[in-house]
């Protein structure tokens, strides 16, 4: 299924090429220290390998960088927002966010546009990408081009895809097949939150015109046993102000999940194996420190996370299945890499 594309920003090859160049361009930061690619490395499935992202001025973000693979299918963006429903909205956040600063372009809009306009390569690329626009180089067109590039990052060549879409049974190991059955089983219920072709929550799916945005508290925290996540990032509550939204985050897609460690919204779980342990336990207990508390007992925790028993061989099978979701070709696909002449 092709991803949906907004009428206001139809994808063209020219926009994708312009967006790709902008994605890797450090001029899109307040101090020239970073670009979109600084937190979204192609080799790491467009994540950065850190627990929490660091902005160009060194500020630590409260959340980890999300993978950009197949996000064109999302119906909600960032880790926890009902309001951010399009890539165009999402892209404005890292460009202009001030708490924390990510790329730090607030107040620098005019000088950025002037710089891009004075660059003959960019002037030509913008003109080609937005030929009918009276104002081809603008913040609006920068965002539209970036969104078009990110929208084009589609992975569909994993072993899982070969099995499901090409009927190639040899593509997936016996262990991964068993793991897949577990993943979708009544026992584990992983697919209650990670569903559809991208094994994700809040995404467009065939048969549904628009998937509502869904958010889950997975029992990672229960600070002071007061049913709260750390105040620095209370998840959806930050946007809604509702106390029962505390600790609720979006279930990200699991494509290429094996290479996007560390995990969870704050990168607080180092490995996939430990993520499975966390879900098997039905939540996490933190013994000491400012975040001490029994996450499992958090009253906001999703009822789907009651824990399960898993034999060690079953865990291996589940890990094999998660491995089978890796599309290695997207990690060095030249269409998504830094332009050579840059």
């Amino acid at each position: 299924m092709l991803p949906p594309v907004p009428d206001t920003n139809p994808v063209t090859e020219e926009k994708v090429q312009l967006g790709r160049r902008l994605f890797y361009d450090k001029r899109l930061s307040v101090n020239g220290a970073g670009s979109c690619a600084s937190c979204h490395h192609q080799r790491l499935a467009f994540t950065d390998g850190r627990s929490r992202a660091i902005g160009v001025t060194g500020e630590l973000h409260s959340r980890s960088s999300m993978s950009l693979i197949n996000v064109a299918y999302n119906t909600s963006y960032t880790w926890a927002s009902r309001d951010v429903r399009t890539l165009e909205q999402q892209i404005a956040i890292p460009l202009f966010n001030e708490q924390p600063v990510e790329l730090g372009l607030t107040g620098r809009e005019e000088s950025l546009i002037a710089e891009l306009e004075s660059n003959s390569t960019y002037a030509s690329l913008f003109q080609r990408a937005f030929p009918k626009s009276p104002d081809p180089v603008s913040i609006d067109t920068v965002i539209k081009a970036l969104a078009s590039f990110v929208r084009s990052i589609i992975a569909a060549d994993s072993a899982f895809d070969h099995l499901v879409y090409l009927d190639d049974r040899s593509a997936v190991s016996e262990s991964a097949m068993r793991g897949m059955q577990l993943f979708f089983s009544d026992k584990l219920k992983c697919s209650a939150c990670h569903e559809g072709q991208n094994l994700a929550g809040s995404q467009y799916l065939p048969g549904r015109s628009q998937e509502p945005a869904e958010f889950h508290n997975t029992g990672l925290y229960n600070v002071g046993d007061r049913n709260r996540y750390p105040e620095a990032d209370p998840g959806l509550r930050m946007e809604s102000g509702q106390s029962d939204d505390d600790g609720r985050f979006r279930a990200p897609g699991l494509r290429n999940i094996a290479i996007t460690a560390p995990y969870m919204h704050d990168g607080s779980i180092a490995t996939l194996s430990e993520v499975i342990d966390h879900y098997a336990a039905g939540g996490r207990s933190i013994q000491n420190g400012p975040n001490a508390g029994i996450g499992k007992a958090n009253s906001n925790k999703s009822p789907l996370l009651a824990g399960f028993e898993l034999a060690s061989s079953e865990k291996d099978d589940l890990l094999s299945f998660l491995d089978s979701l890796t599309d290695y070709s997207v990690l060095d696909d030249p269409r998504f890499s830094k332009p050579q002449d840059d």
């Binding site: 499901v164 009927d167 049974r169 897949m180 219920k189 559809g196 998937e211 789907l304 009651a306």
Partner: peptide, 25 residues
């Protein structure tokens, strides 16, 4: 049978299963 199962995996979960799973907790 296998194709039918795979198709069910990547289709959106139907409301009945979702409710059943939520209730079973």
């Amino acid at each position: 049978e296998q194709r039918n199962t795979l198709a069910s995996y990547i289709q959106p979960m139907d409301d009945a299963t979702r409710d059943r799973w939520a209730e079973s907790r």
